[in-house]
């Protein structure tokens, strides 16, 4: 009973962002017939319908533009900025923001705006890669548990519960310590190590979502029909059930990017993440801690970038939920 209780009670998904932000009275939007979207007299695909709904969510659209801008800025950092992120300029140490250095300089005279752009490269990459890995693990675990049930479900869900009971930040730090000394060279304290560590401790939400979706879908008639036509288990899982559980996965994946970015910057902030001189928003904040009295701007901008990215992605997730899940109470 107790274990199931969480699924019965409203508004208790493990991920806080999964709660309807505009949960409201009664206004149910029926699947396939969204109101206020003009029909153009031709058949439109699910994706087109979803995009039409997504576009009406202004904050989500703004968030998408912001993230796109950040990604472009990070990718084109070399073209945009005249400075080298690593080269120090000892004549202009801890310079306040000015026209020459829009975000000021750090204790080695490096241009902070440039480092923020390059740092975005690392932080965004880690966010997306950790999300991809976590969603892959979570989907696999959830699909197997939900489809096969019985002891497979028992074992996998016990595992999920165990990882959920980990004090996650503490174990994350422990894992980075382990990977820092690993004999595998490409994992040693680098970006990939952080991606792996974050993914290993963040797949559980997706696993639970996918499991729930598989549990209900495996009983449907279309699955029965597929089986009757001779489809094997693998084919049913991948071709029939998975496409029908994509909506919640996509939303969870989007939000996972944001939380991975926060986790990465948190770890780097504490000094257990990506190591300097590679700039990330997190380790820039760590470096700024020593100069907060003399040069507070060093602590403001990298964190502001994290904040803006996270809020933009959260709004995108919000918009995607509205767009992909028309059954959702709005």
């Amino acid at each position: 009973m107790s274990r199931d209780l969480r699924h019965l009670s409203p508004g208790v998904p493990a991920d806080p962002a999964l709660v309807p932000s505009r949960a409201g009275a009664g206004e149910v939007v029926l699947a396939g017939a969204p109101p206020r979207v003009p029909r153009r007299g031709r058949h439109r695909t699910m994706a087109q319908l979803a995009w039409a709904r997504f576009r009406r969510h202004r904050m989500a659209l703004a968030g998408l533009c912001l993230v796109a801008a950040f990604a472009l800025g990070a990718a084109g950092a070399r073209v945009i900025s005249p400075y080298d992120p690593e080269r120090s300029d000892l004549d202009h140490r801890l310079a306040a923001p000015s026209w020459r250095h829009p975000m000021g300089t750090d204790d080695l005279g490096r241009d902070l705006a440039t480092r923020v752009l390059y740092g975005g490269r690392v932080s965004l990459t880690i966010g997306v890669m950790a999300m991809a890995l976590a969603v892959t693990i979570g989907t696999a675990v959830g699909a197997l548990a939900g489809y096969y049930g019985r002891w497979v479900d028992g074992v996998l869900m016990r595992l999920t519960d165990m990882v959920l009971s980990f004090p996650s930040l503490f174990v994350l730090i422990l894992l980075t310590l382990v990977l820092r000394t690993t004999p595998v060279p490409f994992l040693r304290g680098g970006v990939l190590a952080i991606v792996l560590v974050i993914a290993l401790l963040s797949w559980m939400t997706v696993a639970r979502l996918v499991r729930a979706s598989f549990l209900s879908l495996r009983e449907t008639t279309f699955v029965e029909a597929a089986r009757g036509l001779g489809a094997g288990n693998a084919r049913i899982i991948v071709r029939h059930i998975l496409p029908n559980s994509l909506s919640p996965i996509i939303v969870a994946a989007t939000l996972r990017v944001a939380s991975s970015i926060v986790t990465e910057s948190g770890l780097s902030f504490l000094g257990f993440g990506v190591q300097p001189p590679v700039p990330t928003w997190g380790n820039m904040l760590q470096a700024a801690q020593d100069q907060m009295t003399t040069a507070p701007w060093t602590a403001v901008y990298p964190g502001l970038m994290i904040f803006l990215t996270v809020i933009a992605i959260n709004y995108i997730g919000d918009g995607l939920r509205d767009a992909l899940d028309p059954h959702h109470l709005r």
């Binding site: 403001v300 990298p302 964190g303 994290i306 809020i311 959260n314």
Partner: peptide
């Protein structure tokens, strides 16, 4: 509340 949820707390502490 939406914004508050998105603020990384270590940065908020520094601010």
């Amino acid at each position: 509340a939406f914004m508050g949820q998105s603020v990384p707390i270590f940065w908020f502490g520094l601010i």
